[in-house]
Design a protein around this nucleic acid. Structure first.
Lengths: 200, 200
DNA sequence: ACATTTGTTAACCATTTGGTTAAACTATTT
DNA sequence: AAATAGTTTAACCAAATGGTTAACAAATGT
């Protein structure tokens, strides 16, 4: 009997395995097992490990990009963008804890491949945001700051805790519960910190 | 003719390969090639891939830990610690760009193994630092803040740029040169940002 | 000078791994 | 219902990979 969602099951299983173990560490057999199908089906629907990986990567990138684009392209003020990004991004990543690390890892390991995405239309483009910063400085809302440094601070403060979970939790000696409650606190702390540092 | 530094060469090559590709992606043959020796030598000096990996991991951890310990255990003020850590850590990582990512990645993939290190004596211990923060709050130097959040901010702001280089550079469209000069700027920017946010 | 220990190599081995094939099974079309 | 097209499986394959072996070379101790 045909299961019409086999292809979906494969992708779901692939997402799970690839995001946890990366391209190099993932095993086709493990994906097949997790999807509860024969390994040959992987090649029937996605012809190779590389192709399957690309499907997973694309999915991850497309899930991640809107958060950045909200900052880059919405009509909100800079302060609002910082507040809303922090909140929605932390919530998002708490639901998808392996995603940022996966993206970062595979982009680092595979720069040429990643450039395909950064060159495409779904790729976030910081141009409008840079203009907005310039305008708000002009208007006397913001101190004269470098938009790139602001963005880097924002991404660092929100993402690092999740990318470096193991190291952070090891060094600071945090259990699961403490870590989570700290992340909730950070939804407030981070915007406060950043906005205070840039508001005139 | 015997080369008395073969073992060193192996470790150097292993560091290079493991740090770039991780445990799963590294190949014993590639390490042998980079060390310009026969693959059997790897097993002669380090008996398995796992053991060789552990030597590399230990070396990386021991190179990294002092930076944290300087913050945790030196006699400087909190402000000085922030300033000095940022400067020395960014300089250090610019010389060892693969190290933070390697540590983070392998700790995430191998929590039980990592706990061996976090339980050991070389592992940084935040206790003294927490006490110091409490004291400086008491003395009216600092606002009432959570030391864990301060440390997390410090680590995030300094480390993320290097761990997520590819993603950051892709999103912000930075070339090598711009990235480096931004990192130099951050040696000043980060302490400024953090100190301003905690000084009373 | 000789024996012993240490270092090094080429060839080999077993297992893992991504991928293929041919046959069987299921659904759809005619 | 027969033919056709699509789906699934078990068995298989070749290459890659971590690891071993046996013979050889170099250094070291006696």
């Amino acid at each position: 009997m045909k299961d019409q969602s086999t292809e979906e099951n494969i992708l779901k299983a692939a997402i799970s395995v690839f995001q946890k173990k990366g391209m190099a560490g993932a095993r086709m057999q493990e994906i097949a097992d997790e999807a509860k199908i024969n390994k040959a089906m992987l090649h029937y629907y996605y012809k190779s490990k590389q192709k399957l990986f690309e499907a997973v990567f694309r999915q991850a990138f497309e899930k991640f990009a809107p958060h950045i684009n909200q900052v880059f392209n919405s009509d909100k003020s800079v302060f609002e963008k910082i507040t809303e990004f922090t909140d929605s991004y932390i919530s998002f990543v708490m639901e998808n804890p392996y995603l940022p690390n996966f993206l970062i890892q595979e982009i680092n390991n595979n720069p040429e491949f990643a450039d395909l995405f950064f060159g495409s239309e779904i790729a976030p483009n910081p141009l409008r945001f840079k203009k907005q910063i310039a305008e708000e400085i002009e208007m006397g809302i913001l101190k004269p700051i470098d938009p790139k440094q602001l963005l880097l601070n924002l991404f660092s403060l929100t993402a690092f805790s999740f990318v470096g979970t193991g190291l952070v939790r090891g060094i600071l000696n945090l259990d699961e519960k403490t870590f989570k409650s700290m992340m909730e606190e950070r939804k407030i702390l981070i915007p406060e910190l950043l906005i205070n540092s840039i508001k005139k």
